[in-house]
């Protein structure tokens, strides 16, 4: 099945799962009608909860989904959908208070009925989820703590909201209506259980060993992993995996990294990781022989997904590993397709893979265009950020037919997307992967 067809099927399923819980409430005998505003408030609450529930699907790292949609777009969608869910759920009590101001006293948990307090707790838990996600970096919340907060508060938000609904018992009076909503909650919790229990168990049975660890230019390390007691997995060049290093796969410390090795070679996996954050700054200290758990492959950022007459790879700094995976795979497959690699870095000393790229130029129909912010003396290459003029200077006349892959930090991706629009590249030919997506 084509990727576009799969995307449409997923979207149809998404809107069905989103609307079905609301429609269920309107089938069969309904409770006595009340004022419009009160019914609207209740409907918004139900809608918000249905949208919250659907959020379990995009974030569950389900491979049929991650292999179809770009993961950074999925997270982009997830955060904004959660904001919409929060707005809908917040509108539920606000509308009630607006049309019945005396109901504000229900905010006092000491005097309010427990079913109302449950609703309030759910709303506050959702607010905490959103605040810790949007302001994780300004609040200096570590990635692990943020994930722990997410893992705990997500089921709390949903279960407590469900108890609130069952406690109010207005629309869910028929057993089968209760059954649908409780069934949905069970499915949502099942996805969490899959992520936290069955998936780690499967990873535990399929460990990898670190067989080599070597420093690269640009303060990066290449880790070479070999499957231990199993065959490993096949992947498309450019895909990524979640790595758990020196930790239990049941813990919070897994991190997404692009696979850098060729998809056409052995079942060894290579990851090239720059020393950037807390976790990655100690990546070179991981001893050879250590067990690593690899949850993958994920992602659709690949020449195998988006074929074309030629490829343009545009990377900023440590956005280069997926590009290397694609170039190494093209070399191993003896590809004759033309390729261009625009590679932005602060300075020459920080260019990871620079020697190997020179070799790849001999083996492929490849042009490598280095763009340095602080070039050395006598540098005759490109300088500054990758922009429309630079792209025009190096790309052929049929540049609108080529397929583009961009990977790097979000500001760099945004700037390159604008430059590609400027030179008339159709958006459908452009694919992006943000390396700091979570």
């Amino acid at each position: 099945m084509k990727a576009a067809t799969k995307q449409w099927l997923w979207l149809l399923l998404y809107f069905f799962v989103l609307l079905a819980p609301l429609i269920v409430l309107l089938i069969g005998p309904r409770p006595a009608p009340r004022e419009f505003w009160r019914e609207l408030s209740v409907a918004l609450g139900f809608s918000g909860l249905a949208l919250m529930g659907v959020q379990f699907i995009p974030t569950a790292r389900l491979r049929p989904l991650t292999n179809v949609f770009p993961m950074d777009d999925v997270y982009y969608f997830h955060l904004r959908a959660a904001l919409i869910a929060f707005a809908l759920v917040l509108a539920h009590p606000l509308i009630l208070f607006l049309f019945n101001p005396t109901a504000v006293r229900l905010l006092n948990p000491l005097t309010a009925p427990p079913r109302i307090t449950l609703g309030l707790v759910s709303l506050l838990a959702l607010a905490a989820l959103i605040v810790t996600s949007i302001f994780r970096k300004p609040l200096k919340i570590s990635y692990e703590l943020w994930r722990l907060v997410h893992v705990i508060l997500t089921p709390v938000t949903i279960i407590v909201a469900m108890l609130h609904m069952l406690g109010v018992d207005y629309y869910l009076s028929l057993p089968w209506q209760r059954g649908v909503w409780i069934g949905l909650t069970v499915v949502w919790m099942g996805i969490i259980a899959h992520n936290r229990l069955t998936k780690p168990l499967r990873l535990l049975r399929r460990p990898y060993r670190l067989v080599d660890s070597k420093p690269e230019t640009g303060r990066a390390w290449t880790l070479v992993l070999r499957p231990d007691g199993h065959e490993g997995f096949r992947f498309m060049p450019g895909q990524f995996a979640w790595l758990t290093i020196q930790r239990s796969p049941f813990g919070m410390r897994s991190h997404p990294f692009s696979i850098a090795s060729s998809a056409a070679s052995s079942n060894q996996l290579q990851f090239t990781i720059a020393e950037l954050g807390d976790f990655t700054s100690r990546i070179g200290e991981v001893p050879v022989g250590e067990v690593v758990y690899v949850d993958g492959p994920h992602g659709s950022f690949s020449i195998d997904r988006y074929d074309g007459p030629g490829y343009v790879f545009i990377a900023g700094g440590i956005g280069s590993p997926p590009m290397l995976s694609m170039l190494r795979t093209m070399r191993d497959r003896r590809s004759h397709k033309p390729a261009w690699f625009f590679y932005g870095n602060p300075e020459w000393e920080s260019v990871t893979f620079r020697e190997e790229l020179e070799t790849l130029k001999q083996e492929l129909d490849l042009q490598v265009i280095h763009a340095l912010e602080r070039p050395p003396a006598q540098w005759d290459g490109e300088t500054g950020f990758i922009d429309a003029d630079m792209l025009r200077r190096h790309l052929p006349d049929n540049r609108n037919e080529l397929v583009y892959f961009i990977c790097g930090p979000q500001p760099m991706i945004a700037a390159v997307l604008a430059a590609l629009r400027q030179i008339g590249v159709p958006p459908n030919n452009v694919h992006t992967e943000q390396y700091d997506m979570v």
């Binding site: 309904r30 918004l44 809608s47 918000g48 777009d73």
Partner: peptide
């Protein structure tokens, strides 16, 4: 699917839920 498509799905989600909530309230209110 790209960022533009993701934006479209977000807007469709918002509009679908707002409209269906309105329809729900209209159907159910007196």
């Amino acid at each position: 699917m790209g960022r533009t498509h993701a934006r479209v799905v977000i807007w469709l989600t918002f509009l679908t839920l707002m409209l269906s909530s309105l329809a729900f309230a209209l159907l159910q209110s007196r």
